[in-house]
Write a protein that binds this DNA or RNA. Sequence first.
DNA 1: AAATGTGAAGACCTTCACAGCA
DNA 2: TGCTGTGAAGGTCTTCACATTT
Lengths: 202, 202
Amino acid sequence: MDAPEVVIQRIPLYVRLLNQFQIDGISVASSSEIGSALGMTSAQIRKDLGYFGHFGTQGKGYDCAMLLKELRGILQIDKEWAVALVGVGRLGRAIIGYPGFAPEGFKITAAFDVNTKQVGKAIGGILVQPISELGRTLKSKNIHIAVVAVPTNEAPNIIGNLKECGIRAILNYSSISPKVPNEVKVRNIDPILALQSMTYYL
Amino acid sequence: MDAPEVVIQRIPLYVRLLNQFQIDGISVASSSEIGSALGMTSAQIRKDLGYFGHFGTQGKGYDCAMLLKELRGILQIDKEWAVALVGVGRLGRAIIGYPGFAPEGFKITAAFDVNTKQVGKAIGGILVQPISELGRTLKSKNIHIAVVAVPTNEAPNIIGNLKECGIRAILNYSSISPKVPNEVKVRNIDPILALQSMTYYL
DNA sequence: AAATGTGAAGACCTTCACAGCA
DNA sequence: TGCTGTGAAGGTCTTCACATTT
């Protein structure tokens, strides 16, 4: 049986923790140790890992280096991914300037904007192209992941374009929750929704 | 029975859609209309709304204006919230400069940084204060929500401080998943985790 | 006729608890 | 002994389906 989506969303958390364990010189960790470091039960750790294989040693725990390598392989984050950015306004520029993506293997290698005033500029070393070049460039640069940083009103169109051009993963900073077919994954980054779902409890 | 957290996280989506409906001049909507606009089933819409009251009219649907007002009241987003920002580095400055919070009622009214070089500066009209002033300022400005935009290594301490100072809601941009007591709500904004949980499917 | 509100059913996810192994 | 891996149990969330209301 393959792993449900919730599990997939937790694996990156395990990867991050195991990285930290390596820095801290911890070479073996039990499911309880991993669990308590993350505020989860040991059973959940074991169940989650159990979807992918038998990584542990009974009576001992998990070898951190080995488990880390396995999980990175499972997530396919053991290689570099080329990423396209759509929208080079205020937010898009902040994203290009953000130094956190590249070290994790996500490299922005193409940028697009509907605004003809932006097209042709180089931002952070990346040439801004018109949307009409999407299909060609995504194919030639082997890009399967897009970051959407356009105004909300443009977002539905852009996301439609990305789908048509065969994009399979979208990190969406716009304020819409796009409806996409099952074979396209979307993750929405939306601080307003996050805040609004907390005020309920105040 | 009170609404589960998943439901609370969907209510802001309904609010946003109802806003759009008002702009579009749609005054009444059925659960199926709401559902299909959001890619959800009509049953889910009805169940979700059912946690809070009887807002619909049988045979007709929901009055958008009325439902919007009710939901905004339930979420408590029908008033202004003062928000504290911790960390005024690259990301913190982008957050101060982001024009999306204020129109939604979230107003950054205080800023803090551990770096003494930042303290005393005014950024976007907000004076940067030392962390030692947290407790006093949060109380005097009646702040219950904090945005954390500090480097990951500082985050655990900062979040500890915020807890002690009585903060009840944290929008966390740092790369840790803080363990907090039940009475503190946290929402993590983490684009790397989001990307890493999509590459699995590629 | 049309759509809500809601018990019941079903699907999904988490936790328990223990057999089995190092 | 200590901890994994995993069926079974328990809990939570979603969908079904229909009685009820306008």
